[in-house]
């Protein structure tokens, strides 16, 4: 049973990312969208936490949100996979449920 967890807040502004990460586990996925997309970029203060999470959990980022924020060609964290909106739809279909961490 797998959950697609969606985070849309910057961890530099709100604690939603860490609040989500401590409650997900084996088989879950985390999709970073909107203001959360920037933490998929390598070199932020959150990279160790995200890399550790990726040992059990799949990580995705919504590419159009990265592009919009100037990170099209940025080096991303190794475990992060990019999706477009079509890929976002596929992720929702592939998981049993969606949990939006608002």
């Amino acid at each position: 049973m797998s959950t697609l967890n969606i985070v849309n807040k910057s961890p530099f502004e709100k604690r939603t990312l860490e609040q989500c990460l401590k409650r997900v586990g084996d088989g879950d996925s985390v999709l970073l969208i909107e203001d959360a997309s920037i933490c998929a970029v390598a070199g932020t203060a959150y990279q160790d936490q995200l890399n550790a999470t990726a040992e059990l959990t799949k990580l995705y980022v919504l590419q159009p949100d990265l592009d919009a924020r100037g990170f099209t060609d940025a080096k991303l964290l190794e475990p992060v996979q990019c999706v477009d909106y079509t890929g976002f739809v596929e992720l929702v279909a592939q998981h049993d449920r969606v949990h939006s961490w608002l």
Partner: peptide, 17 residues
């Protein structure tokens, strides 16, 4: 905290407010 995932895993629909 460690039990939250198991609770979520049982659900069909999660509404977050």
């Amino acid at each position: 905290t460690a039990d939250v995932k198991a609770l979520v895993d049982e659900q069909d629909v999660v509404l977050s407010f």
